[in-house]
């Protein structure tokens, strides 16, 4: 009996909890990608860099607040800096939309042109972030690190395996859930939210109904900037902030959005967790897990690992490619324009 409990705790500690946190971060990022796709109808290659930009402002704000001696006690100071970062990201998003995308919107350019323009924006933001904060790893988490430590858990329960839960993980899941609920309330209940859905559903008819496209686009950028900054800050608190790592999150975001069904917000969330869980589960070595569950004589020899940890990032791309091949509309029916 205790063996089963030990196995479960082991699984929770190394697979379940990390995947839940990572999945929430991916879901928030994928939501941004999917919203831009459904309203502006292109795959925004600059999304991850907008996330890096927002997070950079959070980091700078955190340092400034720390230098003033302001903190949130057990919670990370970054939460205090977050609102300013969101404002900065919103400002930057709207500035970019004004100066770059609006031109192509009025020309009704093809999605490919938008995508190429977004790679230009990607370069710009990437350069700005590295110019201001540098290319190196930055840690900015402070306050209490753990809600429960592995050692405390062991003494508490008497089990051999420990369970550690980080503050950042709980914050991530909690904030992500609240944010998603708020977003869905907005989309389902408010006039503006419905107008966004209408615009995404049928642009021409939305125009005939008097929905102002520029306003819809503006609100979309604002929401995406909020999502991106929060996702980036949570990711940074959980791990650390490094511009290149953030840039590399672009593909898992796309993977999550497409796996779930691009253009479908529920799909983005489902996709985020599918990608996160597969990344962790496929690269986790199950040797110890099986040692608890199986009798000694059947103990596995190898690591019991499907793919080496080095392929963690590749897993999301592999899933992406498979989904594109087998079911391009994604798990939840997305729109393929």
């Amino acid at each position: 009996m205790t063996d089963i409990l030990n196995a479960l705790v082991l699984f929770s500690n190394f697979v379940l909890i990390p995947s839940l946190a990572y999945g929430s971060q991916l879901a928030l990022g994928a939501l941004g990608v999917t919203l831009i796709y459904s309203i502006l109808r292109f795959a925004n290659f600059a999304h991850a860099d907008m996330m890096a930009f927002g997070t950079m402002v959070t980091v700078l704000g955190t340092w400034w607040l720390q230098s003033l001696g302001i903190s949130l006690g057990p919670l990370p100071t970054a939460l205090l800096a977050l609102p300013f970062a969101i404002l900065a990201a919103i400002g930057m998003s709207l500035l970019i939309d004004r100066s770059v995308y609006r031109f192509y919107r009025t020309k009704r350019s093809s999605p490919a042109i938008f995508v190429i323009a977004s790679t230009g924006v990607m370069f710009l933001l990437n350069g700005i972030v590295r110019f201001i904060i540098g290319p190196n790893d930055q840690r900015f988490a402070d306050g209490e690190r753990f809600i429960i430590r592995a050692r405390e858990f062991k003494t508490l329960t008497g089990l051999d395996e420990g369970l550690a839960i980080k503050v950042s993980q709980v914050l991530t899941v909690g904030i992500a859930v609240m944010l998603v609920i708020a977003l869905f309330m907005f989309l389902q209940k408010t006039r503006m939210g419905k107008a966004m859905r209408a615009y995404s559903d049928n642009e021409d008819l939305a125009l005939l109904s008097g929905i102002n496209p520029e306003r819809v686009v503006m609100i979309t950028w604002i929401i995406t900037a909020i999502l991106a900054t929060i996702a980036g800050t949570l990711y940074g608190l959980d791990k650390s902030f490094k511009p290149f790592t953030y840039f590399q999150l672009l593909l898992p975001f796309f993977a999550a959005a497409i796996v779930g069904g691009i253009g479908n917000p529920v799909g983005a969330i489902v996709g985020g967790f599918v990608i996160a869980f597969s990344e962790v589960m496929i690269t986790y070595a199950y040797k110890k897990f099986f040692m608890y569950l199986l009798p000694q004589s059947m103990a596995p020899e190898g690591m019991m690992q499907l793919l080496s940890t080095d392929y963690k990032f590749a897993v999301s791309f592999i899933i992406l490619v498979i989904v594109l091949l087998v079911k391009p509309t994604g798990l939840m029916k997305g729109k393929v324009v």
Binding site: R191, K194, A195, R197, A198, D201, N202, L205, A206, S209, G210, I211
Partner: peptide
């Protein structure tokens, strides 16, 4: 029509 929206929402959008 807005295919993904309910009948009522379609009418609401008409009155946007």
């Amino acid at each position: 029509v807005f295919v993904s929206m309910t009948v009522e929402e379609n009418l609401e959008m008409g009155a946007y």
